[in-house]
């Protein structure tokens, strides 16, 4: 079991919801999905590579026959999966500090959710509803979400310079190269082993 691979942490959480509340959550996510400006805080939390919420209605747990007993549940369930950089504490602290309104909007419909502020009760709740990852893969264990964004900026700038370079005089090239360096200089952070966590 490992929730960590390189610089990424895999979090899994499951919370019960009364079935009628599921529709409220669906409406909230529908709005969030279609109004991009509402995702700004999530984008600003630039240590999240991928995250998802999945509503599993109580009658929709996969049933395949072959002797499987059909589930008989009272609650619908909200699954949350996140792939983030840094430690569990840093993640929950940042979530609570930056996204408290958004998180409350999503999770207040789950049973016994205490609110995302104060953070101590929020952490206690997340620790209770979290379950561990048995196998975790990332194609880029040495890179963070910011590294990925930066790498694509460097690639785009380089492609542009490569295209332009053959048509430049040496002086024109020097000027274009300096502009290139200015464009990419903030995006050359080193990737590699994750910091040691004590």
């Amino acid at each position: 079991m490992s929730n960590i691979n390189g610089k990424v942490y895999a979090m899994n959480a499951i919370t019960p919801m009364k079935p009628w509340k599921t529709w409220v959550v669906r409406a909230i996510f529908f709005t969030l999905g279609h109004v991009k400006s509402l995702q700004q805080d999530l984008i600003n939390l630039s240590f999240i590579e991928f995250a998802r919420w999945v509503v599993v209605p109580r009658q929709r747990f996969p049933y395949l026959g072959n002797g499987q007993v059909k589930e008989d549940l009272k609650y619908d369930y909200l699954l949350f999966f996140s792939n983030f950089n840094g430690t569990w504490n840093q993640y929950i602290d940042a979530f609570s500090a930056v996204l408290s309104n958004g998180l409350n909007l999503v999770w207040r419909w789950s049973e016994k959710f205490p609110g995302s502020v104060p953070v101590t009760l929020f952490k206690e709740y997340i620790a209770r509803v979290q379950f561990d990852t048995d196998y975790y893969f990332t194609a880029y264990p040495h890179a963070t979400a910011n590294d990925l964004k930066s790498a694509h900026i460097v690639q785009a700038s380089l492609d542009s310079l490569v295209q332009r370079a053959p048509n430049c005089t040496p002086e024109e090239f020097r000027s274009a190269y300096l502009n290139f360096v200015i464009q990419v200089q903030a995006h050359l952070g080193d990737t590699g082993e994750a910091p040691v966590i004590f």
């Binding site: 590579e49 379950f131 990332t138 880029y140």
Partner: peptide, 18 residues
């Protein structure tokens, strides 16, 4: 890009009165 496999043993009971 990223993937995980997790055995989910059960749903989680969050305490009374649920």
């Amino acid at each position: 890009h990223l993937a995980r496999l997790v055995v989910m043993d059960d749903v989680i009971y969050v305490g009374s009165p649920s």
